[in-house]
């Protein structure tokens, strides 16, 4: 439909306003990450929207090579939390994707596991906080507390609903002629799944895996409850970077926040096409 000129002006004005609101919090953190300590909490007329003397000192500080004019040195650097976030999110994604993809195929093609769709949505519905007591007891019993593999296991279970539902809708949409032809050729059903279906589904699998990875990477609450020191993740580590002695380490926290925020934003833009499907459990396919 042809729109009038006043409407176009209104549209751009409204969108630019929305863009400003969207970007100000992000830009403030990016700017803070490159501010020297003197500009961290400058107020009033001294408040700087962009660092006057941009510096990498905050990044050097969290990685441990400098104390950034602060009296404190960190008792451990950001290296291990980053490793912990990576390992737990990657292996959690691997667990969710393998169990979820296999189950989705089993349900989509052979009608097995009819209870799974509802059970998994219920799993997603519950606030993690309401099931964490037994999980904390079990994890302590299994010696999984404060380990990245313990986190990976719970992440794999928590994001299983998304992996399952995404893959189920992808399998449901996939034409079956090729699979049927391979069956007639004498392939076993398992072989059809592993040698024909899965390679054909490479792109959807990658999108679903990225989607699940973002969710795992974004966790804060579960890591807060299940890790204490050795394997804390980036958000937990970031939140701990303040003390009564030194106050808020604004710049250092912003630097860590930036490190945590960049991967999911890039991945999210890469899989934009599938976001709606993933977020609505496949109820809506864009």
């Amino acid at each position: 439909m042809k729109r009038s000129v006043p409407f176009e002006i209104f549209r751009y004005a409204a969108i630019l306003a929305a863009m400003a609101v969207t970007l100000v919090p992000i830009l403030w953190m990016v700017s803070m990450a490159f501010k020297p300590i003197g500009e961290w909490s400058a107020t009033g007329a001294d408040l700087t929207w962009w660092p006057k003397q941009p510096t990498l000192a905050n990044f050097e500080f969290v990685f441990g090579h400098s104390t950034n004019d602060l009296i404190v040195a960190l008792d451990h650097t950001a290296v291990k939390p980053i490793l912990s976030s990576l390992l737990s999110a990657v292996f959690g994604t691997a667990i969710a994707m393998s169990a979820g993809t296999a189950a989705a195929y089993g349900l989509s093609r052979f009608g097995s596991g009819q209870n799974l769709p509802l059970a998994l949505i219920q799993l997603r519905l519950f606030p993690p906080m309401a099931v964490m007591i037994p999980v904390m007891i079990m994890w302590a019993f299994l010696n999984l507390n404060d380990t990245w593999w313990g986190l990976a296991l719970i992440y794999g279970i928590v994001t299983l609903p998304f992996a399952f539902w995404l893959m189920k809708t992808f399998f449901d949409d996939m034409p079956r002629e090729i699979e049927e032809a391979a069956l007639v050729e004498g392939c076993s059903r398992l072989r059809v799944f592993t040698r024909i279906t899965l390679p054909m589904m490479r792109a959807p699998l990658a999108s679903a895996a990225l989607f699940v990875f973002i969710l795992n990477w974004s966790d804060y609450l579960i890591a807060l409850l299940l890790t204490t020191r050795e394997w804390v993740t980036i958000p937990v580590y970031m939140a701990s970077l303040s003390s009564s002695m030194t106050g808020q380490l604004y710049g250092a926290k912003a630097a860590l926040g930036l490190i945590a925020a960049v991967p999911p934003v890039i991945m999210g833009i890469a899989i934009q096409r599938h976001l709606v499907r993933g977020l609505t459990f496949g109820a809506l396919k864009q």
């Binding site: 969108i15 929305a18 863009m19 969207t22 100000v24 919090p25 992000i26 403030w28 953190m29 803070m32 909490s41 400058a42 107020t43 009033g44 408040l47 929207w49 973002i214 990477w217 974004s218 804060y220 980036i234 958000p235 970031m238 939140a239 604004y250 926290k253 912003a254 926040g257 945590a260 925020a261 999911p264 934003v265 991945m267 999210g268 833009i269 934009q272 976001l275």
Partner: peptide, 25 residues
């Protein structure tokens, strides 16, 4: 415009913690 929902929620919390400081932006 889609970016905010991809920001790690804990990090978003920290962004707004900074924004709402009494000497903040």
């Amino acid at each position: 415009l889609l970016m905010p929902m991809m920001v790690v929620p804990a990090v978003a919390g920290y962004m707004f913690f900074m924004l709402f400081q009494s000497g903040g932006p």
